[in-house]
Design a protein around this nucleic acid. Structure first.
Lengths: 143, 143
DNA sequence: GTATATGCAAACCGTTTGCATGGCT
DNA sequence: AGCCATGCAAACGGTTTGCATATAC
């Protein structure tokens, strides 16, 4: 955990007026420390924390991820009924999902063109458009 | 449950070589009896069965929905981390999802144009593209 | 000092499973 | 008769919560 990474994590928290506790700093640093976007599950982030030599309880990881989402620092991505994924990139963009290994990555935004959205049911408006491109290993003809 | 509805349900099961048990017929009839596409959760289908005056255990509803999916009669749609949705329409098409009331409906297919899918990670191919248009009530500026 | 964050373990809830019973062919 | 489907209740797994303790401000 370099000083710059810590600095990034710290500023990220400050931006959302979240108190920089040890646990939040640890998670924030892992999430945005190198400036790259990250996709995690509560479990994977918890494991990453341990690998980094820190200790944060799993419950706190869950609560903190939820707090980060509510603060607008992250967004939840629904790709799998049995796990929640969280993305540090918060704009509306498509995802690649590798079902077999549970991996989630950003897809190039230009790939998908949403022309317009007519016929939205009366009284409703579009909140968000989720695009998930499910991938499988080549040659895996199963399914 | 009209005779035609029962007939439809029955043929639907036969198409997948699934034994026409009382429970399966009941579920199949509710799902495809009127020829319209349907989106259900295990719970909602279980409730519908009871409303129709039949009795099918919740476990059987779960198992049967899974069997219908494996047989290619339905497909699962992932829109909500806490619930599984099942769709009788099995082609690749976008969905409208009303988060607040948990409602899921088909969106007109032409709405979204997927130009092409370059940059798919090495060794993978596209299995499926899920598009979920999340709707909110108009005027509900929250979030 | 006060409000808020954390940790633990227990609760939670949708879903799955083991096993005994019952039904389809 | 044999195999498969069903039902029940218990197990399961990811997530949330209640409450006591610790920390930021």
């Amino acid at each position: 955990m370099t000083p710059e990474a810590l600095e990034r994590g710290s500023k990220w928290l400050a931006r959302a007026d979240l108190r920089p506790t040890r646990q939040r700093l640890s998670l924030a640093t892992l999430l945005v420390g190198d400036g790259r976007d990250r996709h995690v599950t509560a479990e994977s982030l918890h494991a990453a924390v341990q690998d980094a030599g820190d200790q944060v309880s799993l419950a706190t990881v869950y609560n903190t991820l939820r707090a980060f989402c509510e603060a607008g620092l992250m967004q939840e991505v629904v790709v799998d009924g049995s796990r929640s994924y969280f993305d540090t990139r918060i704009d509306d963009h498509p995802h690649f999902f590798m079902e077999e290994e549970g991996g989630l990555t950003d897809a190039p935004k230009a790939v998908i063109e949403i022309r317009d959205l007519p016929e939205v049911p009366e009284g409703f408006e579009v909140a968000k458009v989720d695009v998930v491109i499910r991938l499988r290993r080549k040659g895996n003809d199963a399914d």
